[in-house]
Amino acid sequence: MSDIVTLQDVYKIYGKVHALHNINISIASGEWVAVMGPSGSGKTTMMNIIGCMDTPTKGSVQVDGTETHKLNGAALTKLRREKIGLVFQQFHLVPHLTAVENVMLAQYYHSMPDEKEALQALERVGLAQRAEHLPKQLSGGEQQRVCIARALINYPSIILADEPTGNLDKVNERIVIDIFNQLHKEGHTIIMVTHDPKVGQLAQRQIELDHGQLVYSGVV
């Protein structure tokens, strides 16, 4: 299977802090990887670099065939738009747009908004009835499902989720994890940060960071 993400000798250094220290990993297309490790170990930093939101201080990064460490801001934005689907811990929806409009927003920046398709995406995450609701009218779990629908809408090569269940209760966690399970079965590449070992075990592979270094990679 071909690698969709490759990090080689990647460092991210803030002053004295080595947020990432000599990271080397490859992630295959269609793989579901759980990123684990204590707080401050560099998980989000790594996700940002893979997700084209940031560049490494040193080292090389390949995302779906593109060397991203050489790109400028505009080119990174373009790549992110085309290849990456993002899901955040704090949901991050535009507060004055309805659920379906939040999904359409991703289409709008990507190419063409298509309300029908956006509604179908919401239906996939079980929110067809909530399409016209504003984020504040939705529960946390529902908001996160809107985010997932939005992350999927442009058929990204990689879905990045930074603690997607971190702010959810057990029931909603279950629903969201089931969706990811489904996406994995359909062949999506998923990289997910999680603190929960049980969630981590659902992935094909766990990697663990500590003080910016990769300390474990493999199936538990």
Partner: peptide
């Protein structure tokens, strides 16, 4: 937050 989110979704400066 909203601006950051839009950028994360791939909005360029022009948008």
């Amino acid at each position: 937050q909203e601006i950051a989110l839009k950028k994360a979704l791939g909005a360029d400066n022009k948008s």
